[in-house]
């Protein structure tokens, strides 16, 4: 029997999708082992989130609701999760591998002297022990990893967009249990959040990505790709070449020194497919390559390819997508 605790990431009182994916995964693991599923959420004035968490099967929801948790702090949110771990004694802890999760999980792990199966793409439990696969060397290889035998607390951070989120057939009891962070040392504090441009989706969270490389020729041509992004509901990505040329901010970069992404659809426009780029998007479900050069390595990674001028093909795709929706 493995009791499973899931960390729920909320921002501005909204639960992030990656948390619902982790909760669904946690429910599967708890179900297989006959364990109980619980969740932990931290913030200020967030008690209203409990029913939504219960709908995904959580029997208990540990709620750290305090004014000092209104803004995110790794130390404050770690203290909240640590209190829930003490109260529930789970054998498995899942924390979504978002920027917040990748901040909180390792601090908690160091506090508890536990290991972390980081950024996992598959996760199962065998004889009470977690077994996961995760991309390493930026997706150029895949490692199977497992915690040490007899570990009191096994921690894994599931990669966003990989596991499905689904409500439970029967909701959990969702018993709210308050946990306190009184006395927690909170030193690094968020004093301000500057949102990205309105409507700008982040590649790390996106289900679809349209990406541009050297072939887009200059920053003045992003609108060609952005129009397709808009029609597909996709985020705008970029290759390292485009970022290093100063055409776009690094937050858009996909690849070994950028973000490693796993969307269902990745459209590479004018990207040759350097090994570092392939490492960052190779686990996408469907890859479309649009490039003038039929020898470009990107075609070896692609599901569908169009050898042609992106300045003709991409606008035509935008039009076709519009028609399809109509």
């Amino acid at each position: 029997m493995s009791n499973v605790l899931v960390f729920i990431e909320q921002r501005d009182g909204k639960i992030r999708k990656a948390s619902l994916e982790a909760l669904t995964l946690g429910r599967t693991l708890a179900g297989k082992t006959g364990g109980t599923l619980a969740a932990c959420v931290a913030g200020s004035g967030i008690g209203g989130l409990v029913p939504e968490i219960a709908a995904y099967g959580a029997a208990k929801v540990f709620v750290a609701d305090a004014p000092e948790l209104g803004a995110y702090s790794c130390e404050g949110y770690t203290a909240a999760l640590d209190a829930a771990v003490t109260a529930f004694s789970p054998s498995i802890l899942l924390v979504p591998a978002t920027t917040m999760g990748k901040d909180v999980a390792p601090r908690l792990a160091a506090r508890r002297k536990a290991g972390v199966l980081s950024d996992v793409m598959s996760l199962s439990v065998e004889g009470g022990r977690l077994v996961a696969t995760r991309p390493v060397y930026s997706g150029k290889a895949q490692a199977t990893v497992t915690p040490a035998a007899g570990a009191a607390l096994q921690i894994a951070t599931p990669r966003p967009n990989v596991f499905p989120a689904a409500k439970a057939d029967a909701p959990g009891a969702g018993e709210a249990v308050p946990v306190s962070v009184a006395g927690a040392k909170i030193r690094a504090k968020v004093v301000k959040v500057e949102a990205a441009a309105a409507g700008e989706l982040d590649v790390a969270e996106a289900d679809k990505i349209v990406s541009g490389g050297r072939g887009i020729k200059g920053p003045e041509n992003w609108p060609v790709l952005r129009a397709l992004c808009h029609e597909l509901g996709a985020a705008l990505g970029a290759s390292r070449a485009a970022v290093d040329a100063g055409w776009i901010d690094h937050s858009h970069q996909v690849g070994q020194t950028g973000k490693v992404v796993s969307p269902t659809l990745y459209v590479a426009c004018g990207i040759s497919g350097a090994i570092q780029h392939l490492a960052g998007m190779g686990s996408s479900k469907v890859i479309v390559a649009i490039n003038k050069d039929p020898e470009a390595p990107i075609f070896k990674a692609a599901t569908y390819g169009v050898v042609g001028d992106l300045f003709q093909i991409v606008p035509a795709m935008t039009e076709a997508a519009k028609k399809m929706k109509a």
């Binding site: 290991g115 915690p147 070896k300 569908y304």
Partner: peptide, 20 residues
């Protein structure tokens, strides 16, 4: 070690590209 690697593999090869 708190976490062990039990296996390392290369990612599965993708099928051939469908050219349009």
């Amino acid at each position: 070690a708190a976490v062990s690697w039990t296996k390392l593999e290369l990612p599965a090869a993708r099928g051939a590209v469908k050219l349009i």
